[in-house]
């Protein structure tokens, strides 16, 4: 009986030690720092399209390295709110630019981070893009963009979202900075 008690005690001690080890080890923890993003700037303008981009920093503030398996921007502009433009968006690492909207999985060690570039292209459904975006501004339509990212680290994979807002004022400022709007 005494032997059994000692055995149970040993098992409990080992379990507590393992639990403490894992708790102390922690895991990766990613954050896209929306507050520190740059303003959108106008990258390209044609009669029908306007392409804008901004940079968003991110950090792995956890205690373990982690992998961003996939990440993409999800823009939200329902036609009930504004039906004058079609929107497409893409995201890539600033250190690995690409134009195919494919996010190559990347390992981010703990305590480090990087920057993603979000590119948004507006295409006027009818008429010119300057007019369409001007109307969007008149209607005071802001467009939320969710940064959706999938993480694999020590624990099971998960998908998180972080929301940023692309305001109509910001779009107008970007257009004005390049002389494309009054």
């Amino acid at each position: 009986m005494e032997f059994l008690m000692i055995l149970v005690l040993l098992v409990v001690i080992v379990l507590i030690a393992v639990w403490l080890f894992i708790a102390r080890q922690g895991d990766a923890e990613f954050e896209f720092i929306i507050d520190q993003r740059t303003d959108f700037i106008l990258e390209d303008l044609t009669d029908k399209t306007a392409t804008l981009s901004c940079k968003v920093p991110f950090v792995n503030k956890g205690t373990q390295g982690g992998t961003i398996m996939d990440a993409y921007p999800r823009h939200l502009l329902p036609y009930e709110q504004y039906d004058g433009v079609e929107v497409s968006s893409r995201m890539e690492l600033s250190t690995a630019p690409r134009t195919d909207n494919y996010f190559e999985a990347v390992i981010i060690p703990q305590g480090t981070g990087g920057t993603v570039v979000i590119t948004v292209k507006f295409t006027a459904k009818a008429g010119g893009i300057q007019e369409a975006l001007g109307q969007m501004s008149e209607l005071n339509v802001d467009m939320p963009i969710d940064i959706v990212y999938q993480i694999v680290a020590r624990s099971l994979w998960y998908i998180h979202k972080k929301r940023m807002i692309m305001t109509c004022d910001e779009i107008m400022r970007a257009m004005q900075a390049k002389g494309a709007a009054k």
């Binding site: 992998t67 398996m69 996939d70 494919y102 999985a105 390992i107």
Partner: peptide, 11 residues
């Protein structure tokens, strides 16, 4: 593990 190979197998 993931990222061990090039796209499209990086995931």
């Amino acid at each position: 593990d993931v990222t061990g190979t090039m796209p499209p197998f990086d995931k």
